[in-house]
Design a protein around this nucleic acid. Structure first.
Length: 491
DNA sequence: CCTCAAGGCCAT
DNA sequence: ATGGCCTTGAGG
């Protein structure tokens, strides 16, 4: 398999650069063909069971497909199409819990008699929500004593009358998500009387948001394909199958001390091998996606061919943010021996790249060559890294962004109309899922990154990816991101 | 006055 | 720490 790549890129000889990196450019054509090869191979082995009947009955419910001329405005369309939801949910905590299981579509009468947190008997409104005495007291004590709880599970414990005391963290989160306001607990402990007008209007505002959010979540729970898990389960599956480490720590990047210094030719082959592995890993990732069976292989090929560079940058960026210190205060003049990637200084990263290249190739590379060859890309990547780290995305948000990125069709897509609709529907679903995730009350107070901020970052990712595509060294992010501590040993 | 929602008390 | 019941007091 790996020989494919090397064979195909031999033809492409760009002589304009000095022969320091005498590996050949990995042409896009080669990428496409290789993807085609992998995916068709996949298709025959996997024999996906198509379920056409189910799809027919589901209405896409897309107001309009993002149709624009340029790629950038296409993403702007994506932003604006979801802007409605965004304003609807206006930057505040939401429900998403409690998965309307208990059929009873009790609209108002019975609901007001039940505690909205644990469904015990409600004794009226407390701090903004209809709750029982237990949840009222629990909320008051939590706020008064400034308690900070921690969930020992996965932050998604069910809260009902029976087990409401099993997880304080989830109980408190649910209190918040149901509209209880910490401001309503009085600092001065003055009993009786009424709370101020500001708090009262907050109650109203919060309740209207919660009502709209509930409708929204219920709509998203009606997922586009039956095979797709819903809500948190979908995100959980995505996180579990992501295997970011495998993509970042490619075998080709491991330093083999035996062969590193021995001969030059294998060293150069190693660089093209890295390209092989990137495609391999992305294909592996694609085929384990929860919606893999929902799209024909041609569609996956098409999407991956268009989006692989963005996926690479996104993955590398997320990896960098999660492995290295999220916020390095001053990286300005630490160019010496820091193995840490810089979020602000491209020179540091170029130096890093220089070292890594020297290790992989087994010979020293002059800094000027590295700079000339990869300067633009590294510069761009550093900027991208910086803006990405500001978003502070969670693993859950990251996998959603990854899916959204993959499912982004160009306006001039040549795919069949029904396929295009499916892809758009899927992407829409992941945008909504991300939105719901972002509005979950976080464990650590403020995660104020909004959906709009993330969606507005995507064009930047797209622009950077075009630089990557025009670069001869598209594996650069991996050379930068490679955690030095991990490559001491080789297989 | 009565209502409602806030705090307090205290057996568990 | 929990939660059932009690006290308080501004607003209608």
């Amino acid at each position: 398999m790996s020989s494919l790549f090397s064979d195909m890129d031999v033809a492409d000889s760009t002589s304009e650069t000095p022969p320091v990196f005498d590996h050949k450019n990995l042409a896009l054509v080669a990428q496409t063909n290789l993807l085609q090869f992998y995916l068709t191979h996949l298709a025959t082995t996997f024999a996906p069971a198509l379920k056409m009947d189910i799809r027919e009955s589901i209405t896409p419910s897309l107001p309009e497909s993002p149709n624009s001329d340029t790629d950038d405005s296409a993403s702007a369309a994506l932003v604006s199409s979801t802007k409605a939801l965004f304003t609807l949910l206006g930057g505040s905590a939401t429900t998403t819990d409690s998965t309307v299981v208990n059929g009873t579509t009790t609209k108002s009468s019975a609901t007001s008699k039940l505690c909205s947190v644990c469904a015990d008997k409600s004794t009226g409104l407390h701090y903004g929500a209809s709750t029982c005495e237990g949840c009222k007291g629990f909320f008051k004590r939590s706020v008064q004593n400034k308690k900070v709880y921690h969930c020992s599970q996965d932050n998604c414990c069910e809260i009902d009358k029976q087990n409401r005391n099993r997880c304080q963290s989830c109980r408190f989160r649910k209190c918040i998500s149901k509209g209880m306001l910490t401001e309503a607990v009085r600092e001065d402990r003055m009993p009786g009387g009424r709370n101020g007008n500001s708090i009262y209007s907050n109650y109203k505002q919060r309740r209207s948001i919660i009502r709209k959010t509930k409708d929204y979540v219920e709509e998203v729970e009606r997922r586009p394909f039956q095979s797709l898990p819903s809500g948190k389960k979908l995100i959980k599956e995505l996180v579990e199958m992501d295997c970011l480490d495998r993509l970042i720590n490619l075998k080709g990047l491991r330093i083999n001390p035996a062969s590193a210094s021995s001969d030059i030719a294998p060293a150069c082959k190693r660089l093209t091998r890295i390209g092989d592995e990137i495609v391999e890993q992305l294909v592996e990732w694609t085929k384990t996606l929860p919606f893999f069976d929902e799209l024909p292989v041609e569609a996956h090929t098409h999407l991956l061919t268009q989006r692989w560079a963005e996926l690479v940058l996104l993955s590398a960026g997320y990896y960098a943010c999660s492995v290295f210190t999220p916020d390095s205060p001053d990286t300005t003049e630490m160019i010496d021996e820091t193995d840490e990637i810089s979020f602000t200084n491209p020179q540091v990263n170029l130096r890093l790249l220089q070292n890594r290249l020297a290790l992989v190739l087994g010979k020293e590379i002059p800094f000027e060559h590295v700079s000339k060859e990869a300067g633009t890309l590294v510069h761009r990547f550093t900027t991208l890294l910086n803006s990405f780290s500001n978003l502070k995305v969670s693993p859950e948000a990251y996998v959603c962004i990854k899916a959204i990125t993959l499912l982004h069709l160009s306006p001039d897509s040549t795919l069949d109309r029904t396929i295009i609709d499916k892809v758009n529907t899927l992407q829409d679903h992941f945008v909504k899922t991300l939105q719901i995730h972002l509005h979950q009350p976080g464990e650590d107070s403020q995660q104020t990154t909004s959906l709009a901020q993330i969606l507005e970052w995507l064009p930047e990712l797209r622009n950077a990816s075009s630089v990557l595509l025009h670069s001869k060294m598209f594996y650069v992010p991996f050379l930068l991101c490679k955690n030095p501590r991990r490559l001491v040993f080789d297989e």
